[in-house]
Every structure is written in C-alpha cells, then in structure tokens.
C-alpha cells in the first residue's frame, strides 16, 4: 500500500474494499439479505433460487463490500470453496424456522471451517438467524447452540436474529462485520 493510499484513507477520501462470502442452505434467505442492501430502486420484489452465484456490491459506513452470493442448493455447495481464497469475511445465513435442517447447516459450517483455506485464518463470520418473524422460529441463542458456535474460538463471530424481508437486525450484523473487516485491513496496512 503506497503512501498516497494511506493518506487517502486517513483523510477518508478512499474507502477500504473487501470481498465477503454469503453462504447458507437453500431457502435460508441469502439473496434476500443482499437484496435489502441494494439501493431502493434496484431491489427485486421476488427473489428466485440462485443458480451458481451472484455478485453484489454495496457500501457500508466504513468499507465497500463485494458480496459473493453463493447458491445454497446441495449440488452447488461445493462451489463455495472456490471463493474461500480471497474473501475477508463470511456471512452464514440460517433459516431459524427450519429445525429439521439445522443439523445440515451445522454440517456445512463444519466442512467450511475445516477447509485448509479457512482454518488458519482469523476470518470474521457473521451468523444471521433469519426468518425470526415466523411462528416456528427459534431464538438466535438456540441457533448458536444448534450450530455449536461455542466451540468456535479461533475466529471472531457474531450472531444476530434478523428478518431479511423487512431488514430488521441486518444493519446491526453488517455494522459488526464491516467494523471487523476495517480493523483487519487497518492492521494489515500498519504492518506494511
């Protein structure tokens, strides 16, 4: 990072850029979450199941984020690992109303955390316990217990209950994630 960039950052002229990966099972609400961060006029009213992946760009207070919205369908889940290399943060979306497949979500999370590109890195992971408005939904505490997050000690993580349709709880989560990313980027910049 050059001197000019440092100057630009400190003056707040240039924003930090980061890639984040949005994963989770099919029908968890990943695309809906990202749809909410789009500008008002670009939002789609009906979100369809993602095929392969989509890329969305949006800005938060501190960083500009490029989100890779991965498809959660079983046959596309092995695509996730192709994007582990250059991501600075992960959003893991869980459908908290679907108790039957919480175990599958945990399985996919465990596979991801054991991946050699993820395991040694201190990547911040944001868990979104989505669909909290539904009658069958369980609390974010129960979701975190079901996913076994208490065992996840080597990475910063945060769980928040949210409703991706209305946007409740999303900003709290994304603020945390962007703060973590900003800190990490700044730390890297100081090292250089």
């Amino acid at each position: 990072m050059g001197l000019f960039d440092k100057l630009a950052f400190s003056l707040g002229l240039k924003k930090r850029e980061a890639n984040i990966l949005v994963v989770g099972l099919d029908n968890a609400g990943k695309s809906t979450v990202l749809n909410h961060f789009k500008p008002e006029d670009q939002r789609t009213s009906d979100v369809v199941p993602t095929v392969g992946y989509n890329v969305e760009k949006f800005k938060t207070k501190s960083v500009g984020l490029t989100a890779f919205d991965m498809s959660g369908q079983a046959r596309y889940r092995n695509l996730w690992e192709a994007y582990y290399q250059d991501c600075q943060g992960i959003i893991f979306v869980v459908d908290s109303s679907e108790r039957l497949r919480l175990v599958v979500a945990k399985e996919e999370l465990d596979i991801m955390l054991e991946h050699p590109l993820i395991k040694p890195r201190r990547l911040p992971i944001l868990f979104l316990a989505n669909k909290m408005d539904l009658r069958d939904a369980i609390s974010s505490v129960k979701v975190s217990a079901a996913l076994g997050l208490d065992r996840l000690t080597d990475k910063p993580w945060h769980i928040t209950a949210c409703n991706a349709v209305t946007g409740d709880g999303l900003h709290e989560g994304i603020d945390w994630l962007s703060q973590m990313i900003k800190d990490a980027v700044d730390k890297n910049a100081q090292k250089l």
Partner: peptide
C-alpha cells in the same frame, strides 16, 4: 424428499419413536 432435503430417511420405531436422518452431502 422431506421438507427441502432430498435424501431424508424416516424411521419409526416399535416403541413409537420417530427418527429422521439426513444423508451427508459428502
């Protein structure tokens, strides 16, 4: 296929228990 999961194995026990298993993706 049960719920949204393709490979679900539903077992009902003699004692009346219900056990649902899902095949691991790998």
């Amino acid at each position: 296929r049960f719920g949204r999961e393709d490979n679900t194995f539903i077992l009902v026990m003699k004692g009346g228990g219900l056990h649902i298993k899902i095949l691991r993706r790998k």
